[in-house]
Design a protein around this nucleic acid. Structure first.
Length: 408
DNA sequence: TCTGGGGTCCTAGGACCC
DNA sequence: TCTGGGGTCCTAGGACCC
């Protein structure tokens, strides 16, 4: 039986939430940015987009395009809250919901159509309820699979509804540029263009051996994508795979090169990573340190440990050890720590008393921080640190930051 | 006055073991 | 005096998504 898949995408989500919560911003060109001075535009309102302001521009570039642009530093708690409420609302129409990012979701509504009458009616209900309750418009795509549903929702913005019916698939794809497909980025587009493949129609007709010869196993998938074939299921949170890594990185206000400065930021990052790992109940065996130099060259070094860890100072010590194995050649612009090779929910008690004390201390700090906000309690050396972890979440952030946590 | 942040997946080479 | 083949783990880097 043909599936009916919906992709729903909130329009200019961060900006819409801001305009909704502050009426003075409504109808005005606004842009939501990160909190630091060295940041980019995360989302622009449609009024700002009319001037050419878009995601990824620097603040300076955005102001060039639109001098009256209102810059709003992002408010992650607010977006998180609204997102969770919207996802909860969507559950009225099917339990088969895959939260794809903070402002996007896939829904398998195959079994819901009969109940609500028609696909169009479900879409109308969802749109009007989200508009009425949150003041946000959304674009909806309907198709027999996720690939095409996502494509469909992109076709009309804002406030769009696009349905790709099975009989229209090949007509829709024939002249569609390949980069419109989710999964074909800049590099892949360039490779395909060099093979004289410009449209999905051409990709779908391409000899599979030619594609696999060049791209390996990705080749067969590419051909399928060109044909609009995608059998991947909508995976609800409770069935999703467990998270595989936990990390944080930050672009620093100024480039640094002094070891003491680097250590201060590493401690802060280790605490952010550790606290999140502990909240998820994961332990990691590998610590990865990322460094970006002033000239933007970026590299990483990782080290696997003998044991799984998630205490902040263990993560910190591992990161420092990696740092000490490097020969830095330039001032540092960005630092990042990521914990990978994760193990889930192994509640073994530490053997030694001093370990138990350390664990208890950490738990107490976590409790205070979870209750009163980030970095209320922290290590002494972080006290004079600026911007303590108050960075803006990315649009890729998922509610609760983890895939397999069900939306309440 | 340049260029954010959190993830996943894939590849490729080397070490090491049987 | 030649040089297997499979498997796992580790590391580095890149592409892609939002």
């Amino acid at each position: 039986m043909e599936r009916i898949i919906m992709h729903i995408d909130m329009n200019a989500f961060f900006a819409s939430v801001e305009q909704q919560s502050n009426p003075a911003l409504r109808g005005k060109p606004i842009a939501v940015t990160g909190s630091s001075t060295r940041t980019v535009i995360l989302t622009a309102s449609y009024e700002a987009r009319a001037f050419g302001v878009k995601t990824g521009l620097t603040m300076w570039e955005a102001r060039q395009k639109c001098p009256e642009l209102i810059i709003v530093p992002g408010n992650n708690r607010l977006y998180t809250h609204v997102s969770s409420q919207i996802m909860k609302l969507l559950h009225d129409y099917t339990p088969l919901i895959e939260v794809f990012s903070i402002d996007e979701a896939f829904m398998d509504i195959t079994g819901s159509v009969k109940l609500f009458g028609s696909v169009e009616r479900i879409c109308h209900l969802i749109k009007s309820r989200i508009k009425a309750r949150f003041g946000i418009s959304c674009s909806i795509g309907i198709a027999p699979n996720k690939l095409l549903a996502k494509l469909a929702s992109e076709m009309k913005k804002p406030d769009g509804l696009t349905i790709i019916r099975p009989e229209n698939i090949s007509r829709t794809l024939e002249h569609l540029p390949i980069k419109e497909l989710c999964g074909i980025g800049r590099k892949m587009e360039r490779h395909l263009l060099m093979m004289s493949i410009r449209t999905c129609g051409e990709l779908g007709r391409c000899d599979e051996a030619r594609l696999t010869g060049k791209f390996g196993i990705v080749g067969s998938r590419l051909k399928q994508m060109g044909q609009g074939v995608d059998n991947s299921p909508v995976v609800p949170a409770e069935d999703a795979e467990e998270v595989k890594s936990v990390g944080h990185s930050m672009t620093l206000k100024m480039d640094i090169r002094e070891r003491v400065d680097i250590l201060r930021f590493l401690l802060q990052l280790a605490e952010m990573v550790g606290r999140r790992a502990r909240r998820y109940g994961v332990w990691g065996k590998t610590v990865h340190l990322t460094i970006r130099y002033a000239d933007f060259t970026t590299f990483g070094k990782q080290e696997s440990l003998r044991e799984h860890i998630n205490l902040s100072d263990d993560i910190y010590n591992a990161a420092v050890k990696i740092l000490d194995s490097l020969e830095l050649t330039q001032p540092i612009r960005l630092l990042g720590i990521r914990l990978t090779n994760l193990q889930h929910q192994t509640n073994q008690l530490p053997l030694f008393p001093e370990e138990q004390t350390r664990l208890k201390l950490t738990e107490a700090m976590d409790q205070v921080n979870n209750r009163f906000g980030d970095f209320v309690v922290m290590y002494g050396s972080l006290l004079d640190q600026e911007g303590k972890g108050s960075h803006v979440i990315s649009p890729a952030w998922r509610p609760d930051g983890i895939r397999n946590v069900a939306v309440q």
